[in-house]
Design a protein around this nucleic acid. Structure first.
Lengths: 206, 206, 206, 206
DNA sequence: GATGAATGAGCTTTCATTCAT
DNA sequence: AATGAATGAAAGCTCATTCAT
């Protein structure tokens, strides 16, 4: 069971269907507004409006504006984490090079799909950088990817796998995010995945 | 003569010494506040307060809040750019591996020193990402680093240098920024430089 | 269904009784302040204060300061227009001279009662001159008074009735407003009406 | 000697040529700005700027913003008054009807030329309405026009000349100002003068 | 005398949050 | 549970005015 006492925790756990629907409307509205007009445009009143819910109701389920965003982040982190974990587990026995290419491709997909959370929110609102940052690594990458690398320990030439993993993660994610942020990129998805994978593979094996 | 007509241009050029001091106080105060509490906390009134200057004075020299930040960004980009250009020119004849290690080390230094601008502001305020982003690459990295790589064209095995440079830039900067953002990293400066340089060198030469 | 999309349109329609009261307090306060101290003195904060309402409430119902004034103007124009139309219709069959005297008397009354709008606001705020000006003539004077004059076409000696009506309207209203503006007039209501009516009757019939 | 002690009196009487020039620049700048952009746009700093004078100098010659406008008003009233007085004196012996037509024509000219002061400023800034209003009548119309009417006392049928003059003045000026304010009037200068004069003549003589 | 740097009260407006119904 | 009216601190910014140089 997760601790529900902290400042971002939802106020009450909805127990009726209607309440569930309300919560969902609010989260969807918030996500939509942030995606389309940015964090600053997502005033609580506006969110409630778009959600078709009274501002009073919004505050019945979320103690603050940040709680809404935190819920958005947590949701994204959980889903993205789960997907990545599953993906990694399925590729656990793939050859190193092919596996890495697939993983990089998968990360590109996930960062694109959850771009709002991982790239936009995390940047605009410093408070959430730590949340999503920590969650990112710890929850959905670390353990599983570690397992994958150990699977290929004999092919990998770097000594300190911990350090390498830290560097790698940010190397890869940094390049992907920059690529996604770039309005007029000089390469496409396939090329990016190709180049980044190459870098990773060379880094680990040569 | 630079065009001074744009929306972020300073409102008037200080003509007395105390005016210069005022402008400086404002910029320093803004930088400090943004560094310590983030962009949102840097309200014009607060900046004026910390600068020990009336709000009226602030608006005599800056037409808007954004103009203050723009001045901060421009200043940082110029200084960092100049420093990096000089640094690169001096290393132009260094051997590839040593040169890359030094460049990565230099970038770490610069990103740390101008962290406020390059990592914090650029992320929190999307408007400034484009400014600093473009300036970053174009003004102080691209031409000079391109020259350095061409110097070693025969050692470099990648075919498309343009693409490689794009990937490399973000790979390196992504890793450095993540390292600097991380409160309790598992490695230190030297190790980071070592690992990142290794990755770059292997990527280019193997 | 009136178009509610324009910039002066009220922000939301009050749905509870106390909201109606709030809106009313705001309008009354604005009217009072403008009457007593002029448009410039009617700052939104001051209006809210006098209305005994928070500034936030004021902005829930009016999107801007001008919207408040626009509501005041619209209200006055509508009411005054309706009253004048009714008045004119009732006198439609009165003899020319008597009718004109009554109409001038009525105009004096209306301009006095809605002095704030028609004399003060329209003058102080050029933006509203057009609004109230147009509405004034077109909506509540033109058609009906035209009908009245046509009723007496044979007694009226001027050739171009259109032109005469334009001149007349401003002649009459100009004199009435100057009279009302004047702090120490040398004549009273009855004398003014008498003289102005005389001028109109002579102008039309001799 | 005029009382110089009141709140709108210029601070000091300029005694050097340079000072005279400064005062003039300020007044001209103020007039220009008000004419082109309205009273609200005429901030003291802006006026000083346009006048090519420092804000400090401006306040050396005018104790407040209102003093500038008051000087503008006084100047216009004096000049317009003098012109009208001269004009009237020259027509003193003209036949009544012709004289009235000429006077109305002259008033149209003057109101047009000093439109800024008499129509715009007086309306936008209530404080000045009383000033210009009083000055208007007392200084440049009353005595002289009274003389003209007395010249034709036998042709004039109204009993109370005082009252008639009050009514007439505002009748005429009201119609003229409305005509000048009107963007798309249905008549032209000549027709306006014709109709208004007719009304005056009929009013006085029939 | 002249300059222009400095001031700060006050303006319009927003928005997270509370609370009576 | 839900509504939406109400709140008010705080934001960005202007401008008449003062005063040190």
């Amino acid at each position: 069971m997760k601790a529900n006492q902290n400042q971002f925790a939802p106020r009450k756990v909805p127990q009726q269907e209607r309440a569930l629907f309300t919560v969902d409307s609010i989260l969807t509205a918030a996500r939509t507004i942030i995606e389309q007009k940015g964090y600053e445009a997502a005033s609580t009143n506006h969110v409630a409006d778009v959600a078709g819910v009274s501002i009073g109701s919004l505050y019945q389920y979320f103690p603050s504006k940040e709680a809404i965003v935190a819920a958005l982040v947590e949701d994204a982190v959980l889903k993205a984490g789960e997907r990545t974990r599953k993906f990694l587990i399925e590729r656990m026995d793939a050859p190193l090079a092919a596996g890495i290419r697939e993983i990089v491709g998968h990360l590109l997909e996930v960062r694109r799909e959850y771009g709002l959370i991982f790239r936009r929110l995390a940047r605009e609102v410093p408070r959430f950088r730590s949340i999503s940052g920590q969650l990112t690594t710890e929850k959905y990458l670390y353990n599983t990817i570690h397992a994958f690398y150990r699977q290929h320990r004999d092919e990998i030439l770097v000594e300190d796998l911990e350090t390498a993993m830290f560097v790698l993660e940010h190397l890869v994610v940094g390049a992907i995010d920059a690529y996604l942020d770039n309005d007029a990129p000089i390469l496409n998805d396939a090329e990016l995945v190709q180049q980044v994978s190459d870098a990773v593979i060379k880094y680990l094996t040569k």
